[in-house]
Each structure stands twice: as C-alpha cells, then as structure tokens.
Simulated assay, not measured.
Amino acid sequence: MGSNKTALTVYVTDGNALAMTASDNLKRRKPVDPSQPDTLVVGIGYSLTDSIYAWTQRSIDFGAPIPGDPTPIGVDDFLDFIGDSLRPWVQQIIFPEVNFTRDALYGHSSGGLFATYALINRPQMFDTFIAASPSLVLRNGTIMANVTRLLGDGMGIPGEVDFEFDGQNTTKPAVFLAYGSLEEFPQRRRTQNETQFWARRAILQRSRLGSLTHELYDRLVGSGKMRDVVIKEYPGQDHAGVGGSALMDGIAYFLDW
C-alpha cells in the first residue's frame, strides 16, 4: 500500500491457522472485482509450535477456559492489546500514510466466542463482527444472557452498554454469524462404527453450535442495536470446514458495506 491510500482492515484471530486463508481470498477476489477496496489482513497468532493452535493461550485470550483447567480469563486484556497496542502499531508505525477507515474482527469456534464477547462489551470497537461457529456453550453459557443484559431486548430491557461512537468506527456494528449443518447433527463417517458415531454425536450435540448461533441471532436482532445481522448455515460442513468458508463469506459481507 502506497501513500494517500484508503484501506480496510480485517483482524483475524487464530492467525497461524487462518490469516493466510483470508489473505489468499482477498488476492483471488481483486482480479475479478477491481472495485474491491484495498484491505489489510492482520493475523493475530502465537509463537510457532508443532500446532497451529496455541490451546492454552487462546483459551486465556478468548475467554474460553478449558473445562477443569484453572486457566485465568484474559479476554479484556486481549481486547485492550488489540485496541491500544496492535491497531496503533499497524496504523501509525507500519502504514502511517494509509487512511484506515472501517475494520472487522473475525473469530472461529472459541474465537467466535471472543468476537461475540467483543461485540456485546465493546460494540464501537469494530465496524463488523464475524463469528463463525461461536462456542457459546463455554463459560456455562453465560454470554447468551449477557447479550440481552448488555444490549437490551428492544422492549423493556434497555441494555447497559454505552453506544457512543467516538473512535474510528462511527456506526452501529454489522454482524455475520455462521455455522455448519453437521456441527450439531453429524453424519456417520465411513470409518466409524455405531458406538463411535453415537459417542461423537453426543459430544457435538452438547456444544449446540447451530441452535445457540440461531439464538444469538434472535437476541441481536431483538436488541435493535445492530446495523445489520445475518446468519448463514453451511449445509454439509463440519466445524473445521466452517472456519474457512465463513471467513471468506464474512470478508465479502464486510467489504460490501
């Protein structure tokens, strides 16, 4: 990006696993859609190990504790890092001559829980929130009740979050939600026997990824506080597949605004 450019930004959690997917998607779009605005992908990842997921650290940062693990929750610290350190570093140090306008936050699974937390606690922080297969059942499902407590229900509950937009993002947020049809209702794999299939099905159904994502959609729409909310089901896709598909469609949704 040269000087005097205007650009958008997509902040991608689990950057080790997903940032290149986002970058490649934008590169593929540009030749067939020259009107696409310049967009920067900021992958938020961790030190390289033999896994693309830093399980313990992401559970701290995303506010998604591993059951039975006394790991502390550092979700607010992580949001502070993005807003107070990472974003200024990108905009003022790396690309000081670029005018950054809108930005989006993407998260999948526990990252989707984090994106939801950010949305209801700091809705002014990003223009668009993209939550793919958010693990809303974690933390005993308390985040769902907090959606209504913080944002209101559009009727008798006004909501506790202040919607004063005085920073980079100046409008109510837009939200893209997604899940796969096989996440809650899996099909039996060819390599599974009946016992293995039903054990796997029981685990997935406890996560309630599809039904809770729909409930989140209903609560966000009912709050009347969002600029736009969409939900997309991916037929025939499981948890891993949704991570990439929703990232590409979520970016398209963000760019279209």
Rank of each mutant, 00 (worst) to 15 (best):
V12L: 04
L79I: 13
I143F: 04
A132N: 07
E160S: 10
N16K: 07
Y53W: 13
E215P: 00
E183D: 01
D24T: 11
D14M: 01
V161K: 03
N25W: 14
A104P: 04
L216C: 08
R139Q: 12
L8R: 15
F163G: 05
A132Q: 01
I251D: 03
E233H: 03
T21G: 07
G222R: 09
S223M: 07
D14R: 04
F126D: 06
G111K: 05
L209Y: 07
Y53M: 11
G112I: 02
L8F: 12
Q92T: 13
F197L: 08
D256H: 10
Q237W: 02
T21Y: 02
D76K: 12
R201K: 15
Q168F: 05
L216W: 05
N146I: 01
T128W: 03
V230I: 15
I94Y: 06
R122G: 05
L8H: 13
D218A: 14
T128P: 01
A19N: 02
R219W: 06
L177G: 06
I52Q: 12
K172C: 00
M1I: 06
F114H: 06
A115T: 15
V161A: 11
S135E: 00
N146Q: 15
L18T: 03
G111T: 08
D77E: 14
S110L: 14
A118K: 06
N99H: 10
D256R: 13
S47R: 13
L136D: 01
Y53I: 14
T71G: 10
T13F: 03
G154R: 05
E183I: 01
A7R: 02
F78K: 04
M226W: 10
A19Y: 00
G156D: 14
P96T: 07
G236F: 07
Y53A: 09
Q36G: 04
G159Y: 07
F197W: 10
N169L: 05
S59E: 08
D61S: 07
E97P: 00
Y53C: 04
L204V: 01
L86N: 07
G250A: 09
S85Q: 14
Y117Q: 12
A246G: 03
I157V: 15
F163H: 14
D84H: 10
G112M: 07
F165T: 09
T9D: 01
E97D: 15
D14N: 12
A202Q: 13
G156T: 15
T56M: 11
Y53Q: 08
I82E: 02
I60P: 00
N121R: 15
G63T: 00
D33K: 10
Y234F: 13
F185D: 13
I130S: 04
A17P: 00
R29G: 02
A145H: 12
Q91H: 13
G45R: 09
S85Y: 14
Q205C: 03
T116A: 12
N16T: 04
R188E: 13
D162K: 14
N25K: 10
V221C: 09
L247K: 02
F78Y: 15
N25P: 00
F165C: 08
A246Y: 02
Q36W: 08
S109Y: 10
L216F: 08
R87K: 15
R139W: 00
L220N: 08
L247N: 03
T213G: 04
Q36P: 00
N16G: 02
G152W: 06
F126S: 08
P186E: 07
R227I: 01
A17R: 09
L138N: 03
M1Y: 03
H239E: 01
D33G: 00
Y106F: 15
G236A: 05
F126W: 11
S23N: 11
S245K: 11
Y217F: 14
R208K: 15
